[in-house]
Amino acid sequence: MRRTFINHLTELAKENKNIFLLVGDVGYNVVEKFKNYFPDRFLNVGVAEQNMTSIAAGLASEGYHVFTYSIANFPTFRCAEQIRNDVDYHNLPVTVVSVGGGVGYGNLGYSHHAIQDYGLMRMMPNFKIASPGDLNEVKSVLNYLTKNPQPSYLRLGINNEHKYTVNKKNIIPGKWYPLSLNKGHENVVLSTGTSLKWVMNNIERFKNKDIFTLPIWGMSEKKKQRSIASKFSSIITVEDHLYDCGFGSWLIESLQISGTNRKIQSLALPIETTNMVSSEENILKKMKTYN
């Protein structure tokens, strides 16, 4: 996903002269392409994520659309207040990019497990959360974000080089997108982010259900959910994130706000996984159903 991200960002930056990439001393053998094309719109700020995020706010206030790029929790939790005060409150076009969303860096340990990041980024009123499920969605959400520069979070998986979804020309935030294999079932699975890979690897669990993705969501997209959800009899949300403050609970809150009581189950990571150091595949075996 990260290579697709950099390649596509580089392509977009050829036309869009405002795109600026900051990296927090990560991206070896990945980000060089952008750096070589656009040395004037690239900076490695060093291992200093608080500074990186505030620098992004400063650059953005001068007209750039800034991407801050780092791993797991470093561009989010480490600099949460800079995101809140400097980017979100000033409504500046900064896209925070995290590589290794979920447990893609499973064996590297808890410091590298981004399993509470939705919870943090969901609390930012102006932020859109872009969590692509595959390579096609990486391109689609980037197209949207660069056409609509705004505070945003782009969560990339590390072990997902698949194409499950169809290309979407003009992606709409808050909208659910069906997979082409869907048969028109009333019972559906709604996945966001790279957990789509887990859904596809466990597709036998979801017989007689259609699969949807929700690639762009966030606080501002809650109101749209009622009319979409009302079309289905039951919904199972899927995320590679702790259940608490995650994607499933966002959907439940969204429907509660609008007064809809719909049967929702959530598949998410239980608390026990915070003590696991293992491969992504093994950690995701612990996915638990929350009713």
Partner: peptide, 12 residues
């Protein structure tokens, strides 16, 4: 917060 933001402005 002010000085790090100022660094971004100065670079811009």
């Amino acid at each position: 917060h002010g000085l790090p933001i100022a660094c971004g402005l100065a670079v811009a």
